[in-house]
Amino acid sequence: MTITLTAAATLADRLEALLPQTQCTKCGFDGCRPYAEAMARGEAAANRCPPGGAEGIVRLSALLDVPPQPLDPERGVEQPRAVARIDESLCIGCTLCIQACPVDAIAGAVKQMHTVLPDWCTGCDLCVAPCPVDCIEMIPITGEKTGWAAWSAAQADAAHTRYLTRRARLVREREENDARLAVKAVAKLRALEAEPAMSEAERAALDRKKAVIQAAMERARQKQAAARPRNTENVSPAVQAQIDAAEARRAKAGLTGTPSAGDAGQDNPDNQTADS
């Protein structure tokens, strides 16, 4: 891959750069970066990535200076790359596939037909299981080519960029939603405080509400700080250029203004989804 690595790059950085960036979680970790970190700590073997296949295992093992092992069968099998396809006649517009896609490769909105952007799909198949009407299938597109023979460094790089862009956007949307909730909560408290002739019991109840709201706001602040994704603030100029290019492509395709499933959440941060 061409993920920019400095001389001071950690072992986890170098391992991540050897992974295909499909973000499929078949390795048992929540994406390529957590898997790379686990390998760097000596907590995971180098044979847990089906999309990378045998060649990927050899690359990772060489960096870790360990003998390559066969692919762990519990993680799946090396196979031709596939892309998701939605049967648009069956799609109900539930947006669950949009929420599951780690690289924003599915476009659509609430109660509207969804479609997969095949050039962006990494073949992770994470969108298949959540679909309540079973209208998504994975279509092999690389013939007999498997592993890195079916997936290029340029494709891995683009997938990595889209993954980072999506995570940064979700954090931004969550922060904006929490800010809206905080404004509403403060306005409600002020309205209650302005009510005349408030009894002592009512004043005590109001104080309890204020304490609850302030505690909730502080928990939200701490959660946001803990959830901020890696590699989105101090990225290299090369990676930032890729992120900018991806955003430009989304804007040109008219995707940035598409209503997201999160719009149906009515200020519920747990309902935030991709706005592909």
Rank of each mutant, 00 (worst) to 15 (best):
M39Q: 09
E74P: 01
A36C: 04
G262H: 04
A46G: 02
D65L: 06
R228P: 00
E233P: 01
R228Q: 14
Q155A: 09
K252E: 15
A220Y: 05
E200M: 12
M138E: 10
G262R: 03
T4P: 13
A205L: 02
T146Q: 13
E193K: 01
D157W: 08
A274G: 15
L5C: 11
A9Q: 03
E16G: 05
L192K: 01
A220K: 00
A246D: 11
Q266H: 15
E193M: 09
C27K: 03
D134P: 05
P20I: 02
P237D: 01
T273L: 13
P20W: 10
M138T: 08
E43Y: 04
V77F: 06
R208G: 04
V171W: 04
A38W: 04
A264C: 15
N177E: 13
D125K: 06
M138L: 12
E176W: 04
P132Q: 07
G28W: 03
R219G: 00
D244S: 13
I136H: 05
A216I: 04
R167F: 01
K188D: 15
A38G: 09
D134Y: 14
T146S: 10
Q23W: 13
A179L: 00
V66W: 06
E37D: 14
A187D: 03
P70T: 06
G52R: 05
N268V: 07
P68E: 01
Q214Y: 10
R166I: 02
S89N: 13
R33T: 01
R249S: 11
C127H: 03
D134W: 11
C49R: 04
E218P: 00
G265I: 06
T6P: 01
T4H: 15
A38P: 10
G31A: 07
E200G: 07
R75C: 14
V133S: 05
P67C: 07
M217E: 14
R85L: 08
R190T: 00
R190F: 00
T146V: 05
M138I: 08
Q240W: 14
A204K: 02
W120M: 12
W148D: 11
R81V: 02
Q112N: 10
P50W: 06
L126K: 15
L90K: 10
G56Q: 13
M217V: 07
K111L: 15
L18K: 04
L206H: 05
Q112H: 13
A246G: 01
A159V: 04
A105L: 07
C32I: 02
P20R: 12
R33Q: 13
A211I: 07
G262P: 09
T258L: 12
G257N: 07
A82C: 06
C131S: 02
E175I: 03
A238K: 11
A185H: 02
N47V: 09
A82P: 02
A8L: 09
S152Q: 03
Y35R: 10
A82H: 10
A158K: 04
G76N: 05
C24A: 14
L90Q: 10
D263E: 12
E176Q: 11
P259I: 06
R219V: 14
K145D: 15
D263K: 12
K188G: 13
A194Y: 02
A264T: 13
D65E: 11
R59K: 15
I136V: 07
L90H: 00
L181P: 02
D178T: 03
C101M: 15
C131Y: 00
M138V: 02
A182S: 15
W148H: 15
A168V: 04
Q99P: 00
A185Y: 09
V186K: 03
R249D: 15
A251L: 13
A197T: 08
